[in-house]
């Protein structure tokens, strides 16, 4: 609920073209948007450029966000992912060479687990509780521009099961989040 209020405040600030909206966006969602971008773009300099572009896209196009269709963050995450994917597909990026998609996912996963700070034990618990298969499907679908078919191929699943698998993955994520709610709230407070 509090999170929803945050987003209402953010939306109002952005619609009012208030500079404070941009600060708020950066402070509260900059990390998440950066994560989405850097899962697709591995070069930090390029990811930084794209983040800047994404923040401006959100700022410039906030009127196009439809509050009755999705949460504000869902829309912003989509903007970030699309911007990152556009960049990956652009010629300038391709020249730099792109590693194998599946490798990138695996490598980034490892990086995340290894670089996890000790104080983020709540998140580690959450991620560890999520089955590896479920984590992979969420990450591929959420962070990568993988289609259902590509995901099925990458995870060696029959095409028709991607839907049900993602359903089960989200169900598990939701139950973990519910159980860890108090811990997560605490964690969120401590991390600020």
């Amino acid at each position: 609920m509090a999170n929803q209020d945050h987003q209402a405040v953010l939306l109002q600030l952005l619609l009012a073209r208030d500079e404070a909206g941009m600060r708020y966006l950066f402070d509260h969602y900059g990390g998440a948007l950066n994560l989405i971008i850097s899962r697709i773009i591995t070069e930090p300099e390029v990811a930084e450029e794209v983040l800047q572009d994404v923040l401006m896209r959100i700022w410039d196009n906030v009127e196009k966000y439809e509050a009755d269709k999705s949460r504000l963050f869902t829309w912003m995450a989509r903007v970030a992912r699309n911007a990152a994917i556009d960049r990956v597909r652009s010629k300038s990026y391709r020249k730099q060479g792109k590693t194998d998609r599946m490798d990138a996912v695996v490598v980034n996963h490892n990086n995340m687990s290894e670089s996890m700070p000790i104080e983020h034990i709540g998140l580690a618990k959450l991620v560890n509780k999520l089955d590896t298969n479920y984590r992979s499907i969420i990450d591929l679908l959420y962070f990568k521009d993988y289609t259902q078919a590509e995901t099925a191929e990458a995870l060696d699943l029959p095409l028709g099961t991607v839907k049900t698998r993602s359903r089960r993955a989200l169900q598990q994520l939701r139950s973990i989040l519910k159980n860890e709610l108090i811990l997560l709230i605490l964690y969120t407070f401590l991390s600020h």
Binding site: H28, Y29, G30, G31, A32, L33, N34, L35, I36, S38, F73, A77, M112, S115, M116, P117, H120, G122, L123, L126, V127, Y142, L184, Y187, T188, S191
Partner: peptide, 8 residues
Amino acid sequence: VVLQGQAA
């Protein structure tokens, strides 16, 4: 995602 973003 937000939690992972905060951890990163």
